[in-house]
Each structure stands twice: as structure tokens, then as C-alpha cells.
Nucleic acid binder design. Structure first.
Lengths: 202, 202
DNA sequence: TGCTTATATGGACTCAGAGTTCATTAACTG
DNA sequence: CAGTTAATGAACTCTGAGTCCATATAAGCA
């Protein structure tokens, strides 16, 4: 049995509790656990224990381990998705890809994102949620910035911005998920340079 | 109890059996299961049952679910890694990336590879094996072909072939793993074109 | 304000699969 | 051909996913 000290109002019994309160507890515990121990150690059971909540409650609100992890992640890192728009597409893309590389390599977020994408490969609910809440919006922001650059005449009109996204951010994911080569800010710079200048001779 | 018909020499008892025989049974069952039911349904228990082998035996030879899956996959698809070298880097890259896209989209191999990469994010043994036996060798072949193109003067000497790999194959993995946009052969063509010509105006 | 009702809750359960132990028995060696 | 070695598989433990249902409490109503 657990001793309960005065001042910790962690009374837990049967009955109904305010949904928002429980939801906040769960998301807090999920985010903490995720950033601390990574995706591999992330189980619904452990989140339930950490949050002082029963598994049933969690299953009621989140269809799978992965979607809970995704919510917990966003709850923990409120990531700013703002895309800079200085009018110089080269500078903007470089800044944005560099920032992405820093996020992936300099914080636990990189391993978490890798774990989420990994889990999504065998968890359809998570893949859907990930696309809708993470990759989709990020992709749209980048595409919009590139469309503006096309309007300004800085990018060839016949280039498909959606494909450029794959060749910039997709290349970073590649080095994150299959780390044969290092993921550095210099790498980010050269991704942009290769695409803007071209690497062919002629 | 299982009835044993004449002609099926599936006698299974205690005792030692030729290691190669058992190994072949296991890999065959693993490959079949993987291509038929995908990574999600791939468990050591099921492979053991399908192969008529005990779990202990499998655990003795393969450190994890993932590494068994990887071996099973290669046992099943003996993938040809040959890289064409016609002397025209644009044609060679286009052909190779197109073939890769076809493999990923036209066969069950695509979902299997996705599952393996996914599983590798929480299975260090598998990540190591995947890099050594799959992504590493493939990457090397492509880099070598591009180095030859640089010697022939078809590719700028200051371009890093390792980065180009990320911007071609990495872009395909991106659309495989986070399918926000379709993975088509036209996409493959445009990846190559973007890099060779450049998309900047200036 | 006090009572009723609807419903979120959590303990206990089942089920599946990972990984380990150990007696057994076939394969190898001289 | 007999002794030694070592792979084998049945049974076990342990962990975690997901479900069922009695219960306590929040929300609604008079």
C-alpha cells in the first residue's frame, strides 16, 4: 500500500473524475515518460501507473499506444511550426532545414519522432494521426513558402514544391532513420545548395 | 494431436537435429509469413509454430524479432543489388530509382521494408543488421556509380554523392514511411531532374 | 439545495507473446 | 561402437494489451 503524505492531494478512488483533469494527468505522464525513456519503454500500462489512472480510461480515449504517444509528445513540446519568410528562399529553406536538424539531433525529440514513425509502420491509427497532425501540416508550410518563392521568381515555376520537400526534409529523415551517415547542419546547407544550383554539368 | 500422413516426413521429437536443416526451416517460414501477413503479424512464436521448431531454438540463433525478420526477408527475396552502368549517369540514376520505386510499390517488399525500418527504431540489433546488410551496401553501390560519373565529368566534382543518395533514395523512403504524397515513377524521374538541373533561377 | 441519473472509472480478468530453464536425445568424435 | 557434446522443445514466468462490470461521483433537474 502507498503511504499518502499531507499536502499531496493524490486521492485516488473509484468514481468519476473531471475528464480534463485526468486527461491532463495522462498527457503529462505520457510526455514525461516519452522524453525520459524513449519509445521502446513507452507502454500504456506504465503511463497509467505514472499518471495514477487506470488502463481502461486510457483505452477509452486513445485507440492505440501510438496515438497516445503522439498526443503526449505534442503536449510536451508544443513545437513551433512557424516558417520564416524573409523573401530570400535560399536563406529561409536553409534556416528551416537547419532548425529541423538541430531539433532531431540536439534534443530527445529526434529519437521520439523516429520511434513514432517506426511505430506508425505497424499501427494504422498512428500513421493517420501522424500525417494529419505532424507531417501534413509541416509539409504544407514548406510548400506554401516555396510557392511564394515561385511567385517571386526565385524558384523555377515548373518545379514541384511537394517533391522538393521530400528532397530536403525526406533526406533528413533518411539519415535519422537509417543512420549510415551523420546528420549535421552542414548537410542541411548542402541539401539546399544541391537543389538550387543543380549538380549536373551542362 | 496432429495426424501424420505417410509421405510427410515431419517427425518432430526432442533431441538434436542438423542445424542447417532447422535453420532452413526457420528462414523459410519467416520469409513466407513476412510476405504473406506483414511485419505486424510477424512474431517469433508464430514462426516457430509454422517452422515446426521451438522458440528456444530461434532465440539461440537470432537476438531479436527484427533480425529474424531481416534474415527471413533476404532468404525470401534474394534481391539483386546490381547497379546499371551505361556511362550515362542520368539514365542510370533514373533507371535505378524507378526500379526502387517499383519494388516498394508493386510488391509486398515495400511494406516489409517499411516494417523493418520501423521496428529498427526500437531494436538496436536490427538497426545494426539493417545498416550492415541492407542500407549500407545499397548506398555504397549508388555512391560508387556517382563517383564514376564525376570522373567522367558528368557530375560536379564538388557535389557529395553521399548527400545525393539521401536526396534520391531518402526522398522515396520519405514517401514510403509518411505517405502524404504518392510514390510514383514520375516522382522518381523528377527527383533526378531536380538535382541535375537545379531548381533555382539564377 | 437535495435527489436522480448517466457515465467515467479502475480492479480484476483473459489472452498473446517474449524470453528462460532444464531434462532429453540425437549428432559428432575417436 | 560407445562416450561426449550440445542442440532441442515442453513448460514455465513475466509483461503488457485489451475487456468486463460493479461502483462512485459529476452533472442535470426539481
Amino acid at each position: 500500500m502507498e503511504q499518502r503524505t499531507e499536502g499531496t492531494p493524490v486521492r485516488r478512488g473509484r468514481g468519476r473524475r473531471p475528464a480534463d483533469e485526468v486527461r491532463a494527468d495522462v498527457l503529462g505522464a505520457a510526455g514525461t515518460l516519452l522524453l525520459r525513456d524513449g519509445m521502446a519503454a513507452f507502454t500504456i500500462e506504465r503511463v497509467a501507473q505514472e499518471a495514477g489512472v487506470s488502463k481502461t480510461t486510457i483505452h477509452k480515449w486513445w485507440p492505440s499506444r501510438g496515438t497516445l504517444a503522439l498526443d503526449g509528445y505534442f503536449h510536451a513540446v508544443e513545437s513551433a511550426l512557424a516558417f520564416p519568410d524573409t523573401g530570400d528562399i535560399r536563406a529561409d529553406l536553409t534556416a528551416q532545414v537547419r532548425a529541423f536538424v538541430r531539433l532531431l539531433t540536439g534534443t530527445p525529440a529526434g529519437r521520439v519522432i523516429a520511434g513514432l514513425i517506426g511505430q506508425a509502420q505497424t499501427d494504422p491509427d498512428l500513421l493517420t494521426a501522424l500525417r494529419r497532425r505532424y507531417s501534413g501540416p509541416r509539409r504544407e508550410l514548406a510548400v506554401a513558402a516555396m510557392r511564394r518563392a515561385q511567385d517571386r521568381g526565385q524558384l523555377r515555376a515548373d518545379a514541384d514544391p511537394r517533391i522538393l520537400v521530400d528532397q530536403l526534409w525526406g533526406a533528413c529523415y533518411h539519415r535519422l532513420l537509417l543512420p549510415d551517415e551523420p546528420l549535421t547542419e552542414e548537410f542541411a546547407d548542402r541539401l539546399v545548395a544541391n537543389l538550387l544550383h543543380g549538380v549536373g554539368t551542362g
